Simulated assay, not measured.
Amino acid sequence: MNLSPFLARIVPLAVAFLLTACAGTPDAGPAPAGYYRVAQGDTLWRIATKNSRSVAEIKRWNKLSDNDIQTGQLLRVTPPGGSPASSASSSKPVPAPAKPATVDIRLAWPVPGQVVARYNGSTMKGIALAVQPGEPVKAAAGGKVVYVGGGIRAYGNLIVIKHDARVITVYAYNRELLVKDGASVQAGQVIAKAGGTAGVPNDRMHFEVRVDGKAVDPSPYLPDR
């Protein structure tokens, strides 16, 4: 199943946040240093990733309590009193490289089940792994949780973990989520229970690796079986 459109705009209707104290008008100019002006199609997850932040940090710094944003609003993307990130001063999207470069990271299998669908770069942006309902899903490497939620029914309960400035992993079709947004996790830590929810497969999980925002074949980063 192709998750690429989803990861380009994680939960566009459910995972966005209404700015309170820092709101701007939709037709305002460029964002000041330390802030980001929401562009059309943006989500909080996308803004946080672009600025090397977590969703929890963006939410906390902006005193956000619900799941709406509006084009033209300002979001603080650096800590109050902190130094602005280089990417925070403009609302223009930062283009990703056409082809992700290789990275030096080794991942563990999130579940022991066999691969039932492989990455092909077009219709399948990750791999599907066979699971038993309720079995543990483990973090493939240490990192920070940057998204937890079930806002898109077709993908069930989803977790996204950021491992460094370039690499994230994606865990979809979970029955139960066991970590919270912003949490730090260790390699092999149980983060969810597999098995899906209504509307998604309950006999498999979807796993992705993304480098510089681009989906790559997870196989080279996983140990041989």
Rank of each mutant, 00 (worst) to 15 (best):
P95T: 08
A8D: 15
Y147C: 01
P220K: 13
L158W: 12
R60F: 15
S89F: 08
D104K: 14
A183T: 10
K180T: 10
K162Q: 15
R53K: 13
S91Y: 08
V216P: 05
R37G: 12
I47M: 07
P201W: 01
F17E: 07
P80N: 05
L107W: 08
G143M: 01
F207V: 10
S83P: 06
V94W: 02
K63Y: 13
K144H: 08
G34A: 14
A28T: 06
A98Y: 06
L74K: 07
V77R: 01
L13R: 13
N51R: 04
A14M: 06
W109C: 05
D212T: 02
G156C: 09
V200Q: 03
S4H: 04
V216G: 10
D212F: 01
L158Y: 01
N174K: 10
S122E: 12
W45N: 11
P93C: 03
R37L: 07
D164A: 12
G113P: 00
M205C: 06
D66E: 11
P218V: 12
A117H: 09
A154Q: 12
P112K: 13
M205F: 00
C22F: 11
G150F: 04
A21E: 15
Y155R: 04
V209L: 01
P93W: 03
V179S: 10
A192P: 00
V115K: 05
T25A: 14
R106Y: 05
Y155G: 08
R76L: 15
P97T: 02
A130K: 13
M124G: 04
I159S: 10
A56I: 02
R60V: 05
V209Q: 01
Y221T: 13
V179F: 06
A8K: 11
V179H: 02
Y155Q: 10
A108C: 05
P100N: 07
V209K: 09
S87D: 06
V94D: 03
G82D: 06
K162P: 00
A85H: 11
F17D: 07
V190M: 03
S89M: 05
Q114G: 13
V160R: 08
A31D: 14
V15C: 08
L178P: 00
D203I: 02
A183C: 04
S65A: 09
P223H: 10
P136M: 11
A140C: 02
D42F: 09
W61M: 00
